[in-house]
Amino acid sequence: MSGASALGVRARHRRRRLLGHRLRVGGGVFTCALFLFPVFWMVLTSFKQPKDIFTTPPTFFFTPTIETYVSYMGRADVLHRMLNTVIVAAGAGAVSLVAGAMAGYALARVPLRGAATIGAVIMLSRGVPPIALAVPMFLVARKLGLLDRHITLILAYCTFLIPYVMWLMRGFFKALPEELEEAAKLDGCSRFGAFFRIIVPISLPGLLSTLIFSVILAWEELLFALVLTNRVATTIPVAIAGIAGDSVNGANWGALTAVGTLTVVPVVAFALLVQKWLIKGLADGATKG
């Protein structure tokens, strides 16, 4: 093979790869735009007056109004509920992260007879229809005087978050080299010491990514929030359900999309901030599932 033709082949390869790369970027952006279109439509609708929302054909050009935002943000309970949602989502995320990560570590690294069985049972417990749990949980919470408290919702959300965290973190810990703990043991660390001082700091990206997913799931939960809270600890999804079910005037789609948009903003901001960690953490956590 002469040098010249080899060069030509390589150039062709590079051109083809560049084209492939451009196609990938274009395809990625296009798909993202496609997936975000309903979101765009939601945001657009939130700036419409009710009579501009259901027109034939649909309108892209209209006199925008921020009235819906103003009137809904002005209502004291929206801010109050937003705060509750933050407390509950953060609390449930934190509790399930600690408990779930430790369980995941036990499954991945701690020699323990019976742990695998318990882990399997925990995964299988996710099969319970949530509707079946809501009523008995209400009865228990009332018996203990825990209705309408943040802690009750946090515990209720843990039932579905812990198995999820455990499963993700198990894979993440399995991917870590075993020498880490051995070195820690030689340094005189106990198991707990090794876990909290060495494993946790290394796994921070993975832990954060799991936390974000847990927070998203707790953030939008409706059924338990409806049943277990009344006034003090009630969350944003309950408010949204209330606006949607307006049986007197008809659902106010301006308000619904406005509150819907408002609830998305904090989570997306949070995700943007930590997304580098997120991807890194997921990469390490998911590969050796």
């Binding site: 939601m42 998203i216 939008e220 409706l222 949204i240 659902a251 609830t263 998305v264």
Partner: peptide
């Protein structure tokens, strides 16, 4: 989405949004 370019991070984060929109609002939209 994994193709390496400047906007990759933003694309990945924006991709999360459909999961965050409340189901009632998503269904309605």
């Amino acid at each position: 989405v994994n193709a390496e370019w400047r906007g990759r991070g933003a694309v990945r984060a924006l991709f999360l949004i459909p999961m965050v929109v409340a189901p009632i609002v998503a269904g309605g939209v």
